[in-house]
Design a protein around this nucleic acid. Sequence first.
DNA 1: TAGAATTCTGGTAACGTTACCAATAAATTT
DNA 2: AAATTTATTGGTAACGTTACCAGAATTCTA
Lengths: 344, 344
Amino acid sequence: MEEMTIKDVAKKCGVGVSTVSRAINNHPDINPETKKMVMDVIRQMGYVPNNSARNLKRVDAKCIAVLIKGITNPFFSAVIQVIEAEVQKKKYAMVMQHVEAYENELEVALELIKEKRLRGIIFLGGTYYHDPKQLEKLNVPFVFSTIGTVQGDERIRTYSNIAVDDRVESRKMVDYLLDLGHRRIAIVVEGTAAESVGQLRLEGYRDALSARGIDVDENLILEVRDKIDPYSMENGYKTMREFLATETEFTAVFAIADFLAVGVCRALYEAGLRIPEDVSVAGYDGIPIGKFYTPQLTTICQPVEAMAKKTVTLLLDVISGKAEHEHITFPAELIIRESTGKPK
Amino acid sequence: MEEMTIKDVAKKCGVGVSTVSRAINNHPDINPETKKMVMDVIRQMGYVPNNSARNLKRVDAKCIAVLIKGITNPFFSAVIQVIEAEVQKKKYAMVMQHVEAYENELEVALELIKEKRLRGIIFLGGTYYHDPKQLEKLNVPFVFSTIGTVQGDERIRTYSNIAVDDRVESRKMVDYLLDLGHRRIAIVVEGTAAESVGQLRLEGYRDALSARGIDVDENLILEVRDKIDPYSMENGYKTMREFLATETEFTAVFAIADFLAVGVCRALYEAGLRIPEDVSVAGYDGIPIGKFYTPQLTTICQPVEAMAKKTVTLLLDVISGKAEHEHITFPAELIIRESTGKPK
DNA sequence: TAGAATTCTGGTAACGTTACCAATAAATTT
DNA sequence: AAATTTATTGGTAACGTTACCAGAATTCTA
């Protein structure tokens, strides 16, 4: 029962180790009968190849990594599940690692690549723009994809990007609120990080207003406090409470993440304001609880599953040379539910 | 910039590879000056040791795994974060893998151990009881811990267990509802899986009722439909809708997971019932949204962070021989909020 | 039928690291 | 001063796997 190796299997089968290796790895030059016999013995013995040794020898270690910045965002939870299933289907191995907010995701990636000889990386969260010089350090056979954020511009073509056009989608929501008749719309946003999604969504807000010739009142732009875990309910709650204390007039709130919206709703409820009768609240992301919250949340829903799937297939295709890097934009959907309505 | 190895470092330093290895691994027999010089060169070159080669050679590869059954349960999200931080602090490596609902977690573990030469495993979710014969297959230097579930009995002492006493805590909640005056309390439960948390919590329910001489009405035990993803809001919602259609009388609902409770609340709201005026709703877990949901959820809150930390330290101590296996039970807290009140 | 191509096989050298042993120089003891 | 210990060091054999080469057996081609 001890440590079993390929040699033990070979001995038991009465063949060479090469033959066993060929059977395991689906090599073409092997007699089907031999292969079947070997595989049967392997199953019977319960042998599992040692992955470290494999990766050491193999030039084409089939392993990719998923780097997640901000695991707290449960939006990723669903993404990860889909990614994992897809990667497994393609017979790749996968390592997953969280990147702390203060860490540089590229440095973490660099370490990982050398250590584990990765063929590719999927980035979840973090900023969407990286310095080309930094990127070059992640040597050539190397590839990476982003999800959940969109490239702000066309500066870089050395990596793939799967995302929703945050600026456009955000504007869609604000346009909808404007159509309802709202004029004083507060926005809850996280915008310190340069090149962050928060900024893009804020841009969409400005776009919508300026298109109708409405001046942006900077007092209505509510910056969240906690930058470590920016998309939390707590953050939305506190931000809204502080805002209510200022007694600024408003009829709608657009929170750039559903979780923020939940916190906002609670703060409004505690202040005795009804949703949507007194104030309309809109979110962004399409998290499952939006459907079960009362009031149900109006939101922008991203096609999470499709995006996650495409992320994996694209990355794997680029690795195997079957595809070039691509920047793909998925359409999101405006879902109108109970939390928004016409202003009084 | 190519592939850098320990040899390159040795050459650059003008020393043997052994010396470099010693510098990296903090071996005692090395001249501090030499060590400093080598480390400087390493930093300057940006060399990172290849992990596969290390694990291949090393007998004491410092690596543990976290196996998660049911990633959908966001209760784990927080747990994982804490575990990861703690493991990193102790300079261990960690792999994380999800186990599908239909998969046997022990088999997955077995594969992982052989493949990666793990020193230990942390199980999250899944059943709390395993067949001793099965467990023996996970050879000796091997250790595992459970979290989020409690051992039902003392059948096994070959592994550690960190948990809350689900049966006792569950009873605490039901006792509280009984104290308020409720007599017809429905319970939403997932109980098919043998030896599951669901069963334990149901036992607690029965305990509380029978202690007061109240007969358990089986019609009030609501079994959820979806067994793949049992603790979902959807599941709670559907279960409650079906129950409402039966027109059975009740004044309170105890959902054995907060997410189920959220679904229950929504179903009640849609049926025009007020919480807690018409029906009281209680959950279990203490998820963050419980505080921001309206009504705020009465729940049993588990000390997630402390439990996760203890899980890691205990496992690592058992591995290094500093500790014996232990079964530790953490106390949970009954948090009374808006969703429960006296019956009419 | 001889020669060439094809199919299958086993042996062995890597892969990058650490454990172990032996060697040297320096320090200490007798 | 010789003998012993101590502090450093370099060389080399593993670790378990796959890639590559070279054969043996078989089939095909001219």
